[in-house]
Design a binder for these strands. Structure first.
Lengths: 121, 121
DNA sequence: CGGTATCCGATAGGATACTG
DNA sequence: CAGTATCCTATCGGATACCG
């Protein structure tokens, strides 16, 4: 029969937590470029590095680990010599498509609004 | 007649730019909590600070400036004494609802997937 | 080829104090 | 009340070198 611990609007029911989760998964400078690169088919480390211009090996390595841990990318090692490693999007990554499309559409709309610069939006 | 500057998949047509714009607008630890707080009606600086637990004045000030510059929040000064400043969401901010809902839904789905931890998603 | 190790600068954000 | 100023830390990402 305590006070209910000040459950206020912004926190109640953790509406925000899944949103943060989603943003975190996509966040950083390189996650989307890598996903887009892989959306054209599985690729090897060096291929991704070549297509995602400007990324360093160190950062690509880390980002691929993140994406893999989040179940969006599958890392496959073929035990040849030298080893051949391929990265591919998982089926789960497909579920991101709607999110990305929503973001893209809003980004386009937002740019129009901002450029118009009308103070009466 | 130069080489067309290596327009590869991930960059062509700037698919990524609007997505980055959208992510940038929502990014950081506090943007969403502030938006949610304001979604219940206009509020004053101190009210927001009280409802968004853990934010400091310095950061709230900066975030409100960002949101205002992005046309999502309107700052109104009533010239009383002492001055009364209110912050409210703009109509444009309504267009974010679909994006936020897409993120939220995916965040929930993603958490289920990750918790199941199946390697065969 | 597919990374890791090391170092380093920039930025995000927290703590605290102060002001009109 | 509505912030700004200052300082500080942690994390992000870039540069470069090296390894099996």
């Amino acid at each position: 029969m305590e006070k209910p611990v000040e459950l206020n609007h912004s926190e109640c029911m953790g509406i925000l937590r899944p949103i943060r989760d989603a943003l975190d998964v996509l966040n950083g400078k390189w996650k989307l470029p890598i996903i887009v690169a892989l959306s054209f088919g599985e690729k090897r480390f060096t291929e991704i590095a070549r297509e995602v211009h400007g990324i360093t090996d160190r950062v690509l390595s880390k980002e691929l680990q993140d994406l893999t841990m989040n179940g969006l990318v599958k890392r496959t090692v073929e035990d040849t010599f030298p080893v051949k490693v391929t990265y591919a999007l998982t089926p789960h990554s497909k579920s991101l498509d709607e999110v990305i499309e929503a973001l893209r559409k809003w980004g386009v709309l937002h740019r129009e609004i901002i450029l118009k610069g009308s103070s009466d939006e």
